[in-house]
Write a protein that binds this DNA or RNA. Sequence first.
DNA 1: GGCGCCCCTTGACTTTGGTCAGGGTCAAAA
DNA 2: TTTTGACCCTGACCAAAGTCAAGGGGCGCC
Lengths: 255, 255
Amino acid sequence: MSCPCRPLCLVPKPNCSKPDGPLPRHRATGPALARQVMALPLFDGLEHDVLERLMADSTALACDRRTLLFSAGAAADSFYIVLDGQVKLFALTPDGRESIVEVFTPVSSFGEAAMLSMGIFPLHAEVIEDATLIKVGRRAFITTLQSDRAVAYRMLASLCRWHQRLSSEIRHLKEQPPWQRVAEFLLALTDAQVGEALVSLPFNKEILASRVGIRRESLSRVLARLRDMGVRTEGNSVRIDDVRSLRRLCAETGH
Amino acid sequence: MSCPCRPLCLVPKPNCSKPDGPLPRHRATGPALARQVMALPLFDGLEHDVLERLMADSTALACDRRTLLFSAGAAADSFYIVLDGQVKLFALTPDGRESIVEVFTPVSSFGEAAMLSMGIFPLHAEVIEDATLIKVGRRAFITTLQSDRAVAYRMLASLCRWHQRLSSEIRHLKEQPPWQRVAEFLLALTDAQVGEALVSLPFNKEILASRVGIRRESLSRVLARLRDMGVRTEGNSVRIDDVRSLRRLCAETGH
DNA sequence: GGCGCCCCTTGACTTTGGTCAGGGTCAAAA
DNA sequence: TTTTGACCCTGACCAAAGTCAAGGGGCGCC
């Protein structure tokens, strides 16, 4: 579960000759892994040895589906990086239903906010697809922050971007009807600007419904209605006949 | 519009004998103003001279209602602190309606996120109640960030808290029916935990409706329904008969 | 095969929020 | 005084999402 030489040696220095300790269930190791972690907006451009030190105080976790990482109210003394698999952050409504706030896919991180502000997780986190995670402790992280002021600045920018994403989601929830939110979600899965696109849903429909803020029955109906607009969905693969025209439809009046 | 001695001399050092330059339309000046600015979570605990330097490169603005501070797409090379009055951040839907994302009241700040991430404002900002603002330039701010690493850390924490607020709002939008969102909004206006409470709405019903994501007609109906639950509203003052029981109602099933 | 489980879909019905139109109150302007 | 405009409420109607119930298809397992 951990690297042979250190708690977690993800970032061998260029001249390191030791064989990379493979992480369970995750294909990338050593340099490839390092490249992935450094691809996180959070750590983008971080110096090699700073990252090395950070990772040395972290642990890698291999978690099965349905593992509960933490519950709301738990002390947040670390945050997580998703290398593989998926993790959902959700709340429980008083009547026992769960509402999914976010789903994290590789490569992304979550929990920094809770860790740095209140020190308490406000939501529950559960692995929904067998996952490989890195757990980064608060102390190590703060040390890193202080060792290099560029890190703090970069992290600030990264949080700001995230902030924008959240506030645009609020906008969408308020001003778009559900079918447009679904359509935009699908469109976000492809880079294509024109013509046809074939995308595959990153998770099942129950979760997708929760992400766009409707029930799964409504999602079914929405997808049925979208069929008339050239969105054919079978299983978890979706073919969009004309990306451009769908985008136009989404941009039109929420009415 | 600006302080007599400097672009903006909000923070006279203790031994400064110059008279405080009064800001138009804003009661607090000099030390009182400094106290207000330092009350911002963003600047909480900032050293006196650091703040002084920051403010020296800022400008104070007295803006009338309906002033457009910036439009979506404009270059974000500064952010704003609200000392007095109110500013709304909103988007325009394709059919010309506006949806308000946030309303800022004293003392708070906005625009940091846009400034630090993309450098472009994603929303429009308009003064909705005659306001006194401080406009802080990017360069000065970044200098401050770098001069004191504690600032960066504090700002990180502050952004994280904000992040939590946003993500809890997303939760509410998804899992609560409008009447609960309205009720929670009202409850957030009082500190009382039990018994009766008398609150006054910080802005008119049109804006309130937009904040909770419904139309003003719906808000009227919601307020009418809330009357049966002991929420009497006349004008912009609202009396809640039993805070405790209303809170309980809100916590119950969104169903 | 037969069974149960999971995921998804569909239909019938109910509830609710949006839309449109009308009207009321109040205060400032003409 | 009347007029105007800002703000708010209400009713009638409609479209859409939630709810409840039923059922289909795929898949692993005994």
